[in-house]
């Protein structure tokens, strides 16, 4: 499944066509604008329809071309998939943690985890990187550039 360019092209084509059809269908429900010559649904419907056609053409051409697209798609191996999933989960956890605890604390957790997991550097190196980045967030982003970043329980730092 999805090992060759032909099979992935068919799959993406079908997916994009479905996406286009969904968008075009959803666009029919767009409400009336006021005045003007064109309805606000004009563009979304047109783009949805074009995406449907384009996706369909991609899928059909790939399906018809049995010889050309045999080149293998560069998917990762088993351990590659695992690492990919873990990295993705780590990123998602970082965003979720930032929402809950603010960027400083979440970075203090995420940065050393990432360094340790993907690099196996010493705790010392991981923690000093984390502290460095936390200090940078605080002094440069919050203090110097005055960004209103959430800092969760650390809000007493102002």
């Amino acid at each position: 499944m999805f090992r060759t360019r032909r099979s992935t092209d068919i799959a993406t084509g079908v997916f994009l066509a479905a996406l286009g059809a969904t968008a075009a269908a959803a666009a029919t429900g767009i409400g009336e604008g006021a005045g003007g010559q064109l309805h606000p649904r004009t563009f979304p419907m047109m783009i949805g329809a074009l995406l449907f056609i384009g996706g369909a053409v991609l899928a059909i051409r790939a399906a018809a071309d049995k010889s050309g697209g045999s080149k293998a798609t560069a998917w990762p191996d088993r351990s590659g998939w695992r690492l990919l999933a873990i990295a993705m989960a780590g990123l998602a956890a970082y965003v979720a943690l930032s929402q809950a605890l603010g960027f400083i604390i979440s970075s203090l957790i995420f940065v050393p985890w990432f360094i340790r997991y993907f690099g196996r550097y010493s705790y010392w190196a991981a923690c000093s990187c984390a502290l460095g980045i936390a200090a940078f967030i605080y002094f440069v982003f919050i203090r110097l550039l005055q960004l209103t970043l959430p800092i969760g329980p650390l809000s007493f730092l102002g």
Binding site: I105, I109, W113, R116, G152, P153, L154, S155, F156
Partner: peptide
Amino acid sequence: KWSVMLALWICLGLMAGA
């Protein structure tokens, strides 16, 4: 050992906030 450290960090932060 690592997860213990994590928990410590979080607790510290929460306590300070509270």
